[in-house]
Amino acid sequence: MEHPEPDKRTLRRRFLSVRNRCTEDDVRAAAEVVARQALDLPELAAAGTVAAYVSVGSEPGTGPLLDALYARGVRVLLPVLLPDNDLDWAPYEGPGSLVPVRRPGLMELLEPAGGRLGPAAVLAADAVLLPGLAVDAHGTRLGRGGGSYDRVLARLAAAGTGPALVVLLYDAEVVERLPAEAHDRPVDAVVTPGGVHRFPEARRRPPR
């Protein structure tokens, strides 16, 4: 008798359970290594504008990467969560430019203090760093379920822009298969402490 594949909600609980066992030292160490790996990506080396995000909790830390991109002279855009879960964007202006924001039902977020540029600002990005819980061998990303980045990816697709889509994960979060839906857009690469995983077929395959 075949067992049904776990649904996205079940998988999210599993991956979060493992990730939440990471210590602060684990997160900090992963952040340094992932930053070094990501900065060597040709997609980031050639980017004039990168849409990124500020990591929260036990996510692989993005702080060292944000600072390195900013020091390199890259225009870094960071998200501002809107009441409807869509994302506005504002420029990252270096260490100390983030402010804590708490919204009902959510953990405290760090958001950029600079002027808001509007949801369409992401269309200027040469590369987009996406948060996630896992990615499979086909480039399918499992997000947290809020839908914010589904809107971002839909906006990019509707505009016909083709920025590199890169996810930052821990090694065990790159898996063989995840459930995919029609709107899922495959990513181009995953960066983990152990290395870079690429999905070249993602550029040739429409969303499933």
Rank of each mutant, 00 (worst) to 15 (best):
E93T: 13
V166T: 14
L168P: 02
W89M: 02
Y170C: 05
V99W: 06
L117N: 00
R103W: 03
G139A: 10
G132C: 07
G115K: 13
T161N: 07
A164K: 09
R144P: 00
V122Q: 07
P163V: 02
G145V: 05
D171A: 11
L169M: 06
G105A: 05
R116G: 06
A120L: 08
T140S: 07
Y92P: 03
L129Q: 10
L156A: 09
A120R: 09
E111I: 07
M107K: 11
G143P: 06
P131L: 11
H138A: 15
L109K: 13
Y92V: 05
R116H: 13
A134E: 06
V99E: 14
A121Q: 04
W89K: 01
W89R: 02
D126R: 13
A158L: 13
L123A: 11
A134W: 03
A157R: 15
R141M: 09
R151T: 00
W89P: 01
G146C: 10
V135Y: 03
L106K: 13
G132L: 05
L106A: 10
M107A: 14
V101E: 14
L98I: 11
V122L: 11
L153S: 09
P163Y: 01
T140Q: 08
P91Y: 06
L130A: 10
L129I: 15
P119N: 10
V128N: 04
Y92H: 08
L169H: 02
L98E: 11
A113L: 03
G145M: 02
P104N: 04
P100W: 11
L165Q: 11
Y92R: 07
L109H: 10
H138T: 13
P119M: 12
L165T: 05
A113G: 14
R155F: 00
A120T: 05
D171T: 09
D171S: 11
L133G: 00
L133D: 01
A127N: 07
L165G: 08
A127M: 03
A157Y: 00
T161V: 15
Y149C: 02
A158K: 12
G162Q: 14
A90K: 13
V99G: 05
P131M: 08
Y92D: 07
G147T: 03
L153G: 06
D126P: 14
A157F: 04
A125I: 10
G94H: 05
P104D: 14
A127E: 08
L98W: 08
G139R: 08
L133F: 03
G114F: 02
